[in-house]
Design a protein around this nucleic acid. Structure first.
Ligand SMILES: [Mn+2]
Ligand SMILES: [Mn+2]
Ligand SMILES: [Mn+2]
Ligand SMILES: [Mn+2]
Lengths: 147, 147
DNA sequence: GCACAATTAAAGCCATGGCTACACTTTTGT
DNA sequence: ACAAAAGTGTAGCCATGGCTTTAATTGTGC
């Protein structure tokens, strides 16, 4: 059985696949929080820690830590005892993430996934949808006139 | 603007969505390792730590820790300096996960996702595909005669 | 304008999943 | 048979993302 080992010192295709999945997952939290903060500012004019935590389903110290990471990565700023605000980069991420989220839900619905499952599963799936896949989803929806 | 707060002491729909995504993610590592170990035993008659680590794209101590968790959760057993083996539960998980992985790849291909992206993205997406969604995917593929 | 409620911050605990460094066992080649 | 190589185990470090508890600040009602 010829084990076709890929050129030495190079990762197997399998390993690369898992590495990409891990990288995508590492961004998931940032993506969900920026989208959420953007939502809150649209709907309420401000994004408060307690409200963010409540909607994310975590305690407020957990949300505070996540926001600290957003700030560290240049996606958000905040004023103590006031709200959280997105930077330019954060706003761009929120816009991209919102669109992708919507496309994923629409795609799931278009292939026949029940509404409830589509909403639930999309929250996790979205973070693993690459640009290529997103474009394919959009093309599929367009071809179906579902967009 | 009437904020329709869901019955007090009950999580918002949004929070539930994020909680489900977190729960699914917590199982991802177990799912990928059981599938991998099952693959290795099929192809090589045994699953060794070094080989598992290499294919997962991690160092061997990282794989050893993951295997420790599999054992703790009753999915695998191992004999020191020998291989890793799946329990009944582990074998069942591997079978379920393998099928789901294949269906996800096929679904992505069927809606027009390029092969390379389908293979890469499926590795992360699969863990967030619920039973309802999986069944919808299968129905869609059947209707297309792509199964 | 003050007491109390609500919000936010800060500290510290735990589990997970990466890593490196080092020790030990098994396998291999001569 | 034994030395070297490969494989495996173990210890300990770090970052992340959950949590509870306690302190500080802000907002509210009277
Ligand atoms: Mn999400
Ligand atoms: Mn989302
Ligand atoms: Mn996977
Ligand atoms: Mn898989």
């Amino acid at each position: 059985m010829p084990e076709n080992d890929p050129t030495p010192s190079e990762q197997s295709e399998t390993a690369e696949r898992f590495n990409q999945a891990r990288t995508a997952q590492a961004l998931a939290l940032l993506e969900d929080y920026t989208e959420m903060i953007d939502d809150l500012i649209r709907d309420h004019g401000e994004a408060r820690v307690t409200e963010i935590a409540s909607r994310m389903g975590v305690t407020h110290p957990t949300a505070t830590k996540a926001i600290a990471r957003l700030k560290r990565e240049g996606l958000a700023v905040s004023r103590p005892y006031r709200g959280v605000f997105l930077t330019e980069a954060g706003t761009r991420m929120a816009a991209r993430v919102r669109t992708r989220h919507r496309v994923v839900v629409d795609l799931l619905l278009a292939v026949g996934v029940p509404g409830e499952a589509a909403k639930l599963d999309a929250e996790g799936i979205e973070h693993h949808v690459s640009d290529d896949t997103l474009h394919a989803f959009e093309a599929f929806l367009r071809a179906r006139g579902q967009v």
